[in-house]
């Protein structure tokens, strides 16, 4: 029997079994198991303290968690939409350029080259109410009272969104530009001869051709933005009074600061539903958009 395991077909797929096992399956099973225990990082023996569904019950009753959940959805909605809008605009403009397009494409990617932590620090100092560039700039124009960008409960969220959009709009721009470059010239010209003005060409021809790229970009970015942690952590740390707390800043705080890993893992599993929902939605749209274009 033992021999059978070492037959060549099994041996041939063994590397991938091992890789997937170590990278995905073991962590998955382990973290899922801990979500049913009262595992605290500071007390390793609590790993075997099975508590059933208690973590999940606590979570359902936890208003702060659901606020963070809702805030994350809001964050995703605002950031994705604005990045899409700006990215599309930039892509359309760059697509018009005939000279220096490559250089501009490279320059456009600069924000992506910085670590999100550094982007967070940079914007933190721009938005600082005392020494920040923004308030000092406004001061020059006569706004003498300092605006508490990162302290006000609404402005703080907005400030984080600005930083996030600044850092990542170019991803949209790059992906959509690739889409624009791939649009065949003929249907566009046919539409112009058929009587379309520029806006009608964009609406009726360019946009449908771009749709698959838009949904690919949205899928990628929704996963990315959904796990936002670093920028928020640096800029506000979830404050003021947890007004900028997103799912992962909250989970990280409970898991590592409070060392309450079992509970944090339970939250993570619920949070993942959000990512899956967004991905599923965009992917369905992507498939539909491609089918609409006759691409299978």
């Amino acid at each position: 029997m033992v021999r059978k395991i070492f037959r060549s077909p099994v041996m041939l797929i063994m590397p991938s079994i091992l890789a997937i096992g170590f990278v995905i399956i073991i962590p998955l099973i382990f973290s899922f198991y801990t979500s049913f225990t009262s595992y605290k990082l500071t007390r390793p023996d609590s790993l075997f303290n099975f508590v059933g569904l208690r973590n999940y019950e606590r979570l359902i009753d936890n208003a702060k968690f659901w606020y963070a959940f809702g805030r994350t959805i809001l964050f995703l909605a605002v950031v994705l939409n604005l990045e899409l809008l700006f990215g599309l605009g930039i892509a359309l403009l760059i697509n018009k350029i005939t000279w220096g397009q490559r250089t501009l494409r490279t320059i456009m990617m600069f924000p992506m080259m910085f670590s999100p932590i550094l982007v967070g620090f940079q914007w933190k100092y721009i938005f600082n109410d005392n020494i920040g560039l923004l308030n000092n700039f406004l001061y020059l124009f006569g706004y003498e009272s300092a605006i508490p960008w990162l302290i006000d409960k609404y402005l703080a969220m907005g400030s984080i969104m600005v930083a996030e959009i600044w850092a990542n709009t170019s991803i949209f721009a790059i992906l959509l530009l690739a889409g624009l470059l791939g649009i065949p010239r003929d249907p566009v010209e046919a539409a112009r001869v058929d009587g379309c003005n520029s806006w009608q060409v964009f609406k009726n021809i360019t946009l449908p051709f771009l749709m698959p790229f838009i949904f690919i970009a949205l899928t990628i970015r929704s996963l990315d933005v959904g796990r936002a942690y670093d920028i928020v952590h640096i800029m506000t740390g979830g404050g003021p009074a947890m007004r900028t707390e997103l799912l992962w800043t909250m989970i990280a705080r409970i898991g590592y600061k409070d060392a309450n890993m079992g509970f944090a893992n339970a939250m993570s599993y619920v949070s993942i539903i959000l990512s899956i929902a967004f991905t599923y939605y965009f992917f369905t749209k992507l498939v539909a958009a491609r089918r609409d274009l006759g691409q299978q």
Partner: peptide, 16 residues
């Protein structure tokens, strides 16, 4: 659009 001509293209150029 203002010339009132219509054109048939080599690779059809249909709207997919």
């Amino acid at each position: 659009k203002d010339r009132n001509v219509s054109m048939v293209f080599q690779n059809y150029a249909l709207y997919p």
